[in-house]
Design a protein around this nucleic acid. Sequence first.
DNA 1: CGTCAAGCATGCATGGAGCTTATGCCTTTC
DNA 2: GAAAGGCATAAGCTCCATGCATGCTTGACG
Lengths: 292, 292
Amino acid sequence: MLDVWSLKVLSEVGRLGSFSAAAEALSMTQPAVSRQIAALERRSGVLLFHRLPRGVRPTGAGQAALEQAAHVLDGIALLETRLAAHAAGEHGRVRVQAFPSAATAFVPECFRLFAARHPAVELSLTVGGGASAVLAGEADLALVTSWDPAPAGLDLVPLLDDELLVALPESHPLAAGESVRLRALAGQAWIDGSHPDCLGPLSELAAALGTPPRVSHLCDDWNGRQGLVAAGVGVMVFPSIAGGAALRPDIRLLRPEPALPARRVFAAVLPAPGRSPAVEELLRTMLGYGGP
Amino acid sequence: MLDVWSLKVLSEVGRLGSFSAAAEALSMTQPAVSRQIAALERRSGVLLFHRLPRGVRPTGAGQAALEQAAHVLDGIALLETRLAAHAAGEHGRVRVQAFPSAATAFVPECFRLFAARHPAVELSLTVGGGASAVLAGEADLALVTSWDPAPAGLDLVPLLDDELLVALPESHPLAAGESVRLRALAGQAWIDGSHPDCLGPLSELAAALGTPPRVSHLCDDWNGRQGLVAAGVGVMVFPSIAGGAALRPDIRLLRPEPALPARRVFAAVLPAPGRSPAVEELLRTMLGYGGP
DNA sequence: CGTCAAGCATGCATGGAGCTTATGCCTTTC
DNA sequence: GAAAGGCATAAGCTCCATGCATGCTTGACG
């Protein structure tokens, strides 16, 4: 099997027209070059260089070999460059898996910051798969919360604490101020998703309210839930990570008093040696993102 | 420096999804494959394969490396193919240097036969440089005759003996038969080229004529000489290698009696290890060419 | 015309890279 | 729970490429 070093020697000999000069350029001795070329000629069965009294000159076959060798060496160099780019996190692909409220503002903002520094990295976002997508090889990084069951075999990197707010229709009598006492909401109808992704652990809310919340409506769609709130059929917990921009103008957000236990947000990624440098870079970006 | 064997191992691992399977496919042991990939990952500083319980799966960087490695391996294979073609004489270039009368019929006919068997070989023909063109690297094969000084440092391969005829205008009183007694031409005016390329050694002609020939006109152009003969201003020696097709219809060719010493035709080529296989093949074709 | 210098080829010894064998550890599966 | 499949690691060995020393050929120069 032809190896790259032979081709490098061949190329230098062709460029410099001399075994000795090529040897010096490659930091080796002239006999080594002589043997390399001789081996190449023996294996291919054709003379590659005419030996002249003053250096060498490529034969027809040597000329063809030089041209092809240049292509191969370019390919090698490109491969090394690409691997270096991957190693530096400057190139690659990161597939992010997020829960809906994180996909609203947090992930797009992180993508914007990341893309400014690493324009060659391909980013993609999917919603709804959970941390198992990372284990299945369908995602490189999954955003999970303290409400989700801890995934086995993945590292959890704490990103931020998500403050939980309460969303009321603007016509609601308690919607006037900046905050609202939770005890005052004890009798309200609450809106939740079908899987525990919206209200969070009901026990925590029950403790804050002083009574188990009355869950009157179930809706998995983010906009649908806002519509229910705006229509005045219920109130809901609104994670601040979703950002105000995604909020309908006829809904008011209030800080509950006392504050609900924050929902912790983690990045679930493969253990250290399995993470690509691009993922590491994105993690760094997410950690440095303080909020809007 | 990345070597091809590593890339081959990488490629097989990517294709088969397993170190063990790749090892068997490459006739090596699993630890050897493991070492190769580990070395590749250490050098490039990036993980190339996720180690799964059942085999391995390429990472993003591994995928990129696999694609690039495929290109490099293709380039290597192409290089080997081309060298093999050169070694078999199926590919390459042969630049032939001929004297004018050989370029008229002999070389074109040899080219026709050669091209039928080796269509990928590029053939070219130049006239007038002599054997030194081979030494200068401007030609790969030169046709020379026994009239030329023997070139130093080249092999002379005897190709054929060129019979020398005499050209007379059709109106000449001696032009009737098939042959002509040389003694009868002793008083004729002879046409020659400025360098001894047409009449040949004058001593031989003088011996045959019984008296030194009277050279009345010098002309280096082949058609010009024929014109002089046709005009009746002189006669000339006509080498049979030029073939009858190149002869004007108003000129007659006659066999001299006794025959002039034949002009021997050689191929002047580099000594054995310096000849390309394509040149060897062309030599074989020329040797097998019996004449029209 | 003799000597010298440049440059490629070759014999020999050596050092390092890679391979093989043997073994351990982890995961999955019956 | 035991067995098997698969990757990682340690130790030892083999082989090949390199470096050193040397010879040979050719051209240059005095």
